[in-house]
Simulated scan of single mutants.
Amino acid sequence: MKNKSALLIIDVQVIMFTFDGGSLYNGGKVLQNIHELLTKARYSKIPVFFVQHTETPNLIEGKEGWPIHPRIKPLENEMVIQKSTCDSFYKTDLHEKLQEQGIESLIIVGMQTDFCVDTTCRRAFSLGYNNKLIADGHSTFDTKVLKAEQIIEHHNSVLGGRFAHLKAANEINFN
């Protein structure tokens, strides 16, 4: 059976780009990379799955920051999975929906590196998916301990080679 891939876009929601607590590191470039991957996936008819965080005070349906960023708005035929934890698989039907389509490989992008991207990469690996983490396709915010750039570099180092193959956005071809 041919290895079937899907693009998994995690929590690229408006709030990430309008957060009062600080700026998303390299947010414009990361959004551009995700947009380009999404465009290539759609052109190549690769399934796209959006994950949308919900059920926190700022991320409730109808609130200003809740929607998926308009630059990458899902099409009607694209799956949107809502979650309430850092794990895109926990108490969602993501795994079942991927299995229904015979997906074996995930190309992973999104927000935030140190929370939902990290947890989802590890869980997807444990579920048997062949992951490609897009090194320049995820981001986060500075913390009191580390700058966002350091967090991203650290997670790329830890996740890459263990839980995912690390790739740059421009290295991904869906054909």
Rank of each mutant, 00 (worst) to 15 (best):
K91C: 07
T56I: 12
L75N: 08
H35C: 14
K97Q: 09
G102E: 07
M111H: 13
K29Q: 14
K40Y: 06
I103L: 03
K83F: 02
G28E: 14
N58M: 15
T119Q: 00
V117M: 02
I108A: 01
E55H: 14
E61C: 10
L24E: 00
D20E: 11
G27D: 12
E104I: 05
K73D: 10
M16Q: 14
A124R: 00
N77C: 08
H35M: 14
E61G: 10
G21T: 09
S126Y: 11
E78S: 13
K29T: 12
N77V: 05
M111V: 13
T56E: 11
H53D: 09
T92W: 10
H53A: 12
T113F: 04
E78R: 10
C121P: 00
H95S: 11
S126W: 11
P67L: 02
Q99T: 13
Q82D: 10
S126M: 13
Q99K: 13
T92P: 07
K97S: 07
T54F: 08
K83E: 03
Q101R: 14
V30H: 00
Q52Y: 03
T113Q: 05
K83A: 06
N26E: 11
P47A: 15
Q99G: 10
L38V: 15
F50T: 06
S88R: 03
C116D: 03
Q13G: 01
I103W: 02
Q112E: 15
I108N: 01
S84E: 13
T92G: 12
T113L: 05
Y90N: 06
K63E: 07
C86S: 09
K97T: 09
Q112A: 15
Q82S: 13
V12L: 01
L98W: 04
G27K: 07
I68K: 01
I107F: 02
I103H: 03
E100V: 09
G102L: 09
T18V: 02
L75H: 09
R42K: 15
L31T: 00
F19R: 04
L94H: 06
D93F: 09
C121E: 01
F49P: 15
G21N: 13
L98I: 04
L106G: 00
L98Q: 05
S88D: 05
